[in-house]
């Protein structure tokens, strides 16, 4: 309940923040704090310095870039969940954000923070994967754009360097016939709490068949991951119930499914298939 001592740095602009990260190699970036502070309170994490980016202007916007939308580093889960723009172009992410934590957590916690935290059972990373999001990482030496597919490295480990800040996540706009969805089983059942298994899917329908698909699975392995085999099986199919079910059978292809308090390997494997089918069907029906 009592964090260790640390230096608190509250820069007023991004350059100052980046300089602070360079000067304090062990520093952690604080935005909403919904992941960082509980770990610090429990002393599971004790950084020497905390760089609070909460007062930096311009990071709290969801913006329309023409061919993509951007969600800034300080945009909260609640704002993502309530955004018409996100709902239109990344419904999977809006849904995932609405099922993250509880009201209080959604009011402070940020979408970007959830992505960087990279919890194995978090909702939003798989939505970012399915939506082929781009992570915009800024450091004093410049800006890197990292594809979501390359971002989630391992359990609670992202591709972000210690001196980088994820200033925005960029989602390509959904074209005609494209829609996404997220579905999950939460730890207490229903949609609440971390995912025992969760699946985000994005599909594009054209001329009666599926022309593109991405599917990502959370909760079952050591990190959120894209499952190409499901997408491959979907593309070219007619999106019928049978086709979706057949594709969903590949839901854990290439994933080492891990047991935890909430599921055995067999159960999680099964759930990944169930929610793959549910998420894909929901996306298909939204795609029209």
């Amino acid at each position: 309940m009592y964090p260790r001592e640390f230096e608190y740095i509250a820069p007023s602009d991004l350059d100052e923040a980046l300089a602070a990260l360079d000067a304090n190699p062990g520093a952690k970036v604080l935005a909403g704090g919904m992941s960082l502070l509980p770990m610090m309170k429990m002393r599971l994490l004790s950084p020497d310095a905390v760089v609070d980016i909460g007062r930096i202007a311009g990071l709290d916007q969801i913006s329309d870039n023409g061919d993509s939308i951007s969600i800034g580093a300080l945009v909260t889960h609640a704002e993502v969940a309530a955004s018409d723009l996100v709902m239109e172009h990344g419904a999977a992410l809006a849904t995932a954000a609405s099922w993250t934590g509880d009201r209080q957590v959604r009011n402070r916690g940020t979408c970007c923070g959830s992505l960087v935290h990279a919890d194995v059972a978090a909702d939003q990373p798989v939505a970012a994967l399915a939506l082929a999001a781009t992570m915009v990482a800024v450091s004093s030496s410049g800006t890197r754009e990292i594809a979501a597919a390359d971002f989630f490295v391992d359990t609670m480990m992202s591709a972000l360097e210690p001196n980088e800040i994820l200033t925005e996540v960029r989602i390509p706009k959904a074209g005609p016939g494209t829609a996404s969805a997220y579905d999950k089983l939460g730890r207490r059942g229903g949609h609440t709490d971390y995912a025992v298994a969760g699946v985000a899917a994005s599909v594009t329908r054209s001329n009666g068949s599926i022309s593109a698909a991405t599917v990502a699975v959370t909760g079952v392995g050591s990190k959120p991951v894209l499952v190409g085999e499901v997408a491959d099986a979907l593309v070219g199919s007619d999106g019928s119930e049978a086709a979706v079910e057949a594709a969903a059978a590949h839901a854990t292809c290439g994933i080492e499914v891990l047991e935890d308090l909430y599921g055995s390997v067999a159960y999680k494997t099964h759930l990944a298939q169930v929610f793959t089918a549910r998420a894909v069907n929901a996306a298909l029906s939204a795609a029209g």
Binding site: R187, R188, G189, G190, T192, L261
Partner: peptide, 28 residues
């Protein structure tokens, strides 16, 4: 439906915080 004080074979309590010791909420 929810609550379980789970110990592993070495006597570690695996559900010792409210993250893993699941209490019913209003929506349950």
């Amino acid at each position: 439906m929810f609550e379980d004080a789970v110990y592993d074979a070495d006597g570690n309590l695996l559900s010792g915080s409210l993250v893993d010791y699941i209490l019913p909420t209003a929506s349950d």
